[in-house]
Amino acid sequence: MELNLNGKTALVTGGSRGIGKAIALGLRSEGVKVGICARGEKDLAEMKQTYPDVSVYQADLTCEEERVEVFKKFIDDHGSIDILVNNAGGSNGSTIQETSIDEFRDSMELNFHAAVQFSKLAVEKMKHNGNGSIINISSIYGRESGGKPTYNSSKSALISFTKSLADEVIPYGIRVNGVAPGAILHPSGNWQRRLDENPEKINQFVEDEIPAGRFGKAEEVADIVTFLASERSNWVVGATLNVDGGQSYSNF
């Protein structure tokens, strides 16, 4: 299937490792001119050394001013934007009663507000092109309890935002969709850390909770993102697709 992405431009937040890195490389393999932004300078430097054609931008994406600066630099470097992947995210806190309001705010800033702001900036540019694709990486735990409450809440907000923005901007030829990964195993992720700490417990979790019988791969998430970024998914608007090997309990 020809995706016709060659020559497009894409910004991937949190693109220096894990799922974000797989997404960036998946788009790059289709001829997309990719820029990534992240906080960690070491990971960014490694990406730049290995893939010199990838543009890298170091920033704290919890900071509104730094998000604006990253977007400005990307446009200065690439001229426009065709694809935005809001992937940056993280988990903090513990139980609701043991988690401070500040921790809830921090989670919303990274997992939700960053995506909202980058999307607003991208829409203004995409309107001039008459097309564009925005893809928000949420989680199956945005639909059901499973992760930490701060994470669940912010990812749930992102799923709702995805549908709202999609309906608002599709008349301009801009499609907004989401991907909700389940348990994805990659070297820099929490599942790998948990597996290293207690392999028996985590292997039992996989057996009990993932019908497909294994963890997902970052590249399997990237494949769906690449499809959603392409014209082959033109009639997919406002959807958030589970990529989870059947792990989710929800049926919508």
Rank of each mutant, 00 (worst) to 15 (best):
Ala239Trp: 12
Arg39Met: 01
Gly93Trp: 00
Gly26Asn: 04
Phe118Gln: 07
Glu46Ala: 14
Asn136Pro: 05
Ala212Trp: 14
Glu124Asp: 14
Thr162Ala: 09
Val123Phe: 02
Gln49Ala: 15
Thr240Arg: 04
Gly130Leu: 12
Gln117Ile: 07
Pro199Phe: 11
Glu231Tyr: 00
Ala180Pro: 03
Glu200Cys: 10
Lys127Pro: 10
Val68Tyr: 13
Phe112Ala: 06
His113Trp: 15
Gly245Leu: 10
Ile224Ser: 08
Ala59Gln: 02
Ala180Gln: 11
Tyr57Gln: 01
Met108Ser: 09
Tyr57Leu: 03
Lys72Leu: 09
Asp60Ser: 08
Leu110Cys: 04
Pro199Asn: 11
Ile36Glu: 05
Glu41Thr: 07
Asn129Phe: 10
Phe215Gln: 06
Asp196Trp: 06
Asn242Gly: 11
Ala122Lys: 00
Gly15Met: 02
Lys127Ala: 10
Gln247Pro: 10
Ser133His: 04
Ser80Met: 10
Gln192Trp: 08
Leu195Cys: 10
Asn177Thr: 13
Glu219Arg: 01
Ile210Met: 01
Val70Tyr: 03
Gly26Gln: 01
Asp82Met: 01
Ile170Gly: 06
Ser133Phe: 08
Val236Thr: 12
Val237Tyr: 07
Val179Ala: 01
Ser145Cys: 14
Leu3Phe: 11
Asn86Pro: 09
Val54Thr: 14
Ser153Met: 15
Lys72Val: 10
Thr240Ile: 09
Val116Tyr: 14
Thr240Val: 15
Gln58Val: 05
Gln49Arg: 15
Glu168Tyr: 14
Glu65Gly: 12
Thr13Asp: 05
Met47Ala: 13
Pro199Asp: 13
